[in-house]
Design a protein around this nucleic acid. Structure first.
Lengths: 112, 112
DNA sequence: CCGAATCCGCAACGATACTG
DNA sequence: CAGTATCGTTGCGGATTCGG
């Protein structure tokens, strides 16, 4: 992995070119600040380890903010940074494409 | 495991929510039809196995077309399908985000 | 109790060598 | 040239455990 960021889209891909990251960002965009448990429940299919791992990396990359409340029971909230907010057009385009090209197994049942 | 196409963006992610797929699509978009060796050289960092694997899946998903020339030496060309072409807005938004937020000397593009 | 860390089994991945 | 085969390594999911 010599390069990685030689092209603009490669930079983007290195930050959000991962299935779970996109879904996490989608959740934070739609729902706003969310707790770990909320994300875990909403994004069913993701393991706790994967969720933690991706959240940590996205925090390092400056896409999200991790706020820990030193309380009992533990409470950790995740929210988008300004940089994370700027990804909205990308998420929107992906969402729009999904709407237009999803296999309509149940006709005209496209909820949006 | 209802791996999810319950949401539009999940459908998109299931098709192109992978680092290499995005880069492959980017190449086919920018360069047009390309041979296996071309993709392998342009997308340095990807292994042949990974390239083959992702190309096969994208062919199954109807994003690209694989054209084999029954010759010696072998010649295989990959190109975008109509469906694959429709992903251009998504790739463009990712590329645009990369341009605006890549850590480089874009003087004052960072403002939005 | 919630969020994260640990161990383990398995699938994915990279590098190399080989084939048609 | 365009893959396939094999192998060693890494990454991931699941269950369990820790820690506040």
């Amino acid at each position: 992995m010599p390069c990685g960021d030689s092209c603009p889209i490669e930079h983007t891909v290195n930050l959000i070119g991962h299935k779970w990251k996109v879904l996490i960002l989608r959740n934070l965009h739609n729902m706003g600040t969310q707790r770990f448990g909320d994300l875990s429940k909403e994004i069913r299919g993701i393991s706790q380890k994967m969720l933690t791992q991706q959240l940590r990396q996205m925090e390092i990359d400056g896409l999200i903010i991790r706020k820990v409340y030193p309380e009992v029971p533990p409470k950790v909230e995740y929210s988008l940074t300004e940089l994370g907010e700027t990804l909205k057009p990308v998420l929107d385009s992906m969402n729009l494409w999904g709407i237009n090209h999803m296999k309509m197994s149940t006709p005209k049942d496209v909820e949006q």
